[in-house]
């Protein structure tokens, strides 16, 4: 049931393979080597300029590969209204590159006129839920398509929260008809940070709404009591614990478009490509053992 009375079409989307976040550092390697990879994901805000090399390279890559569009600046959890100008720039990027899917975060990054360039947390209560659902309705109306909402990685909680993150996400899906982007690294980071079980979170996740999976690296730190605090830094390879959780997810849901994000201390192309191949290897191995089980 969509909140605005429209049931959004689930699109053909992306191939159920692994892809990586597109970095300017890799434009040349990708166009020279033409790697066998499922898709590239772009940050919408990096392609909102009028012209220049970013569009030239992306157009060439788009000719050869599917693209998914990932917003980082829409501020869906913001107190204020969505920025209409930003929304229309987003629509232009979507029209230009015809991405297989569009995703954004359950987070806020703007307040008044300031943009903080970080994904900031929201309390899980009725008031926030209403606001987030209104904003998602607006985004889906503006783009004329269903969007995926990404579960956040968080470092703090709010005393005023009155429901769990999963209940919040389920409500959003049921009211707006949006899908979910399951970021497995975020699940792990948040679980460690809030001293909860990532397995229990995943076992209760509304997998039927998942349209894409994200994987990425995190950095270890410590909290106020000296306990572990993980930072969603996207600055290194995917952690072993996250690979294990990913395998658990794939066993449940089968093959899903899976993105490896690496945004800081960006490595050589071959290293990032290796991470995508590792994700595909897990998908292939799970699907082989499923076939075995079926034929046994």
């Amino acid at each position: 049931m969509a909140g605005n009375g429209r049931a959004w079409l689930v699109e053909a989307g992306l191939p159920a393979r692994a892809g990586v976040g597109l970095k300017a550092e890799h434009y040349h390697a990708i166009l020279d080597q033409r790697p066998d990879i499922g898709f590239f994901e772009i940050h919408a805000e990096n392609y909102m300029g009028a012209g220049g090399p970013p569009h030239a390279y992306l157009s060439a890559i788009r000719d050869a590969y599917p693209i998914s569009l990932h917003g980082v600046g829409l501020s869906i959890g913001a107190l204020g209204p969505l920025d209409g100008a930003h929304l229309s720039r987003l629509r232009q990027v979507a029209e230009r590159y015809e991405p297989g899917l569009f995703s954004e975060h359950l987070a806020w990054s703007t307040h008044d006129t300031a943009y903080y360039n970080d994904l900031l947390p929201v309390p899980y209560d009725r008031e926030t839920l209403d606001r987030v659902c209104d904003h998602i309705d607006q985004v889906q109306e503006a783009l004329g398509r269903r969007m995926l909402l990404e579960n956040p990685s968080t470092y703090v909680a709010f005393e005023q929260s009155s429901m769990s993150e999963l209940d919040f996400l389920r409500e959003v899906v049921s009211r707006t008809g949006c899908g979910l982007l399951l970021d497995v690294n975020n699940v792990y980071v948040s679980a460690v940070n809030h001293q909860t079980s990532p397995e229990a979170y995943l076992d209760a996740f509304p997998f039927e709404a998942v349209g894409e999976i994200h994987l990425g690296g995190h950095a270890p730190d410590t909290d106020d009591e000296g306990g572990p605090l993980l930072i969603d830094a996207h600055d290194r390879a995917v952690d072993e614990a996250v690979w294990a959780l990913y395998e658990r997810v794939i066993e449940r849901v089968g093959q899903v478009p899976t993105l490896v994000e690496w945004d800081n201390d960006v490595p050589e192309w071959s290293v990032l490509y290796g991470q995508a191949q590792a994700a595909e290897a897990i998908m292939a191995s799970v699907s082989r053992s499923r076939r075995h089980a079926a034929s046994a």
Binding site: Y116, N117, D118, L120, Y155, V156, A157, F158, E159, Q160, N193, H194, Q195, D221, T222, D223, D224, E225, L229, I231
Partner: peptide, 22 residues
Amino acid sequence: AGVVGPNGKAAEKRFAVYRNNV
């Protein structure tokens, strides 16, 4: 006020992660 760590504990260092990210 109301921004906390697990079990309602203080979250000075946790909040600092956001300040640092920005």
